[in-house]
Structure formats: structure tokens, C-alpha cells
Amino acid sequence: MSDFSRTRRTSWAIRRDKLATCGFYGLGALVMLLIFWLLFTILSKGLPGLDFSFLIRQPEEIDAGGGIGPVLFNSFYILLISLVISVPIGLGAGIYMAEYAPDNAFTGAMRICVEALSSVPSIVFGLLGLAIFAEYFGLGLTILGGGVSLALLNLPMLARVTEEAVRAVPKELREAGYALGLTKFYCILKIVLPVALPSIITGICLVAGRAFGESAVIILTAGLSTSGEMWDFNLVSPGETLAVHLWYVQSEAIVEDARQIADKSAAVLVIVVLLINLAFRLPLWWVKRGAGR
């Protein structure tokens, strides 16, 4: 190959690299603009009329001026129940699949099943929760049924994210721990999990945001009403959440200010999801900043 041909090919490769780089930057900017446009559209409609009293008032069925107090509390309560159940089980399942499970056909089939469950529509888990809690145990539509059903919905995704995060930890770190005389459990606890923690936190953020904004599961397992109390910790009370209330107000409510309530509820829902992600990520950011000093 002549020097001219080699130079021509090199210049063409450089141009393709620049074109690809510009294309990826353009796609990233387009996605960011779309996200900011959606956030601006939702928040600009809901934030101007939002005040603290709206967050603590009872919803109204007929009169104007209702709030979202009980449904907002139920949203956090059901989210807490689902995370308390799903996080330990999901982390344990992911660690087992990555570190302890033998590499055979049964384990491969198990992974396929977990991946399939991750893509199952949420309404299927709602029907499962309805069959178990409302029909088999006869509890009706309750906060407990909603929380457990959400935990079942989030378990497959959390287990897969944890497994992939643990598998991504370099083997050299494990071998260094074993060379120092660490046991397998202690090596996982002190070396593997701290390295995989950012990815695991990302998975928890995803399932927490999904659980907080879920509506299909809650409609079938927790219902479309509340007990009427602001702070109701009774697990067998009906548990309408903010996402369900938003759907109900937008589609079924007869109050004259239903549109304004829906806009403000949507703004609160978006803000809370953003705050959930921020609450999980701030400690990691703080630890990284301290480690970099």
C-alpha cells in the first residue's frame, strides 16, 4: 500500500470518528432537550398553584379545593413496605446468582425466568396480588397487598441489576482479598459490594421511582380510596396512592377544579421521584468526593 493510500484511509477514519462523535453528542443533546421539555411542561402547569396546604388537605369528591394529603402519605408508606421486602431479597438473590450459583443449565434457566419476569406488565402482578390478598386471604384492597405486590414487581429487576453489578467487579480484587486470607463472605462484604454499590444504588433508584409512580398494581390491590385519615398506618386500610389519584382525578372526578388538581398532583409526583433519586445518590457523591481528596 502506498503512502498516499494509507494517508487517505487515515484521514477518512478521522473524519468518520468526528462524524460519529458529533452524532452521539447530538443524540445526547436531543434526549436532554426532550427530558427538560417534559419537565418544564409538567412543572410549569402545576407549580404556580401549588402550596403546602394542598399537600396536607383531604381529597374532595364534590367540592372544589381538595388536597392530596392521605394519598401522598399512602404513596410513601407503600413504597417503604415494598423496598423493605424487595431490597434484601433482591440483593441476596443477585449476590447468590453472581457468586454462589453454579454455572449450569438450571442456573441459566433461572436467569431467563428472572429476565422474563422483569418484562412482565405490571397489571399481571396486580392481578396476582388481587388473587392472593383480596380473594384467597379475604383482606380486600389494602395497603399491605399493594406494598407486597409492588415488591414482587420490583424483585426481578433488582435481582438482575445486582447480579450484573457484582459480576462487573474485576476478578483481580477478589483474588487480592483471597490472597490476604479473607473468606468468600468477607470478601464479598468488604470488597465486592462497595465496588458494586453505585450500580446497585442505581437499580434501587429505578425500582423506587417505578414503585412510587405505579398505578395499575395499586388500583387492583390497594383500591381507589383512602381511610380518610391523614396518618393511617393500618396495613389493612385502603391505600390509594398519588399516581392512582392523579389518574382518577384526570379521568373520573366531577369536581370543578379537577384539571388544576391533576396538574398540581403531576408536579408533586415528578418532584418526589426526582428527590428520591437525589436522596439515594447524594451519599454516593459525598463518599466519592471525600475519597478524591
Rank of each mutant, 00 (worst) to 15 (best):
S2I: 02
D3E: 14
F4N: 14
D17V: 08
K18N: 10
G28Q: 06
V31M: 10
S44V: 02
L47N: 01
F52P: 00
Q58Y: 02
P70H: 04
V71D: 07
F73C: 12
N74D: 14
S75Y: 10
F76A: 15
I78K: 13
L80E: 06
L83H: 05
I85Q: 04
V87P: 00
V87M: 03
Y100N: 01
N104T: 01
N104P: 01
M110H: 05
E115A: 07
L117C: 06
S119M: 01
V124A: 03
F125P: 02
L127T: 02
G138C: 04
I143L: 09
S149Y: 09
T162A: 13
T162V: 14
E163H: 09
A165Q: 11
V166W: 12
R167M: 13
K171D: 15
E172I: 15
L173H: 14
E175W: 06
Y178L: 05
L180Y: 03
L180R: 08
F185E: 08
I188H: 02
L189T: 11
L193I: 12
I204A: 03
G209K: 05
I219Y: 04
L224A: 11
G228W: 05
E229N: 05
L235T: 07
A243P: 10
H245P: 13
W247Q: 11
Y248E: 12
Y248G: 00
V249K: 13
E252C: 02
E252F: 13
V255Q: 06
D257C: 10
D257E: 07
A258N: 15
I261E: 15
I261F: 15
S265H: 10
V268A: 07
I271H: 11
L275P: 15
W285M: 13
W285T: 12
W285I: 09
V287Q: 12
G292C: 06
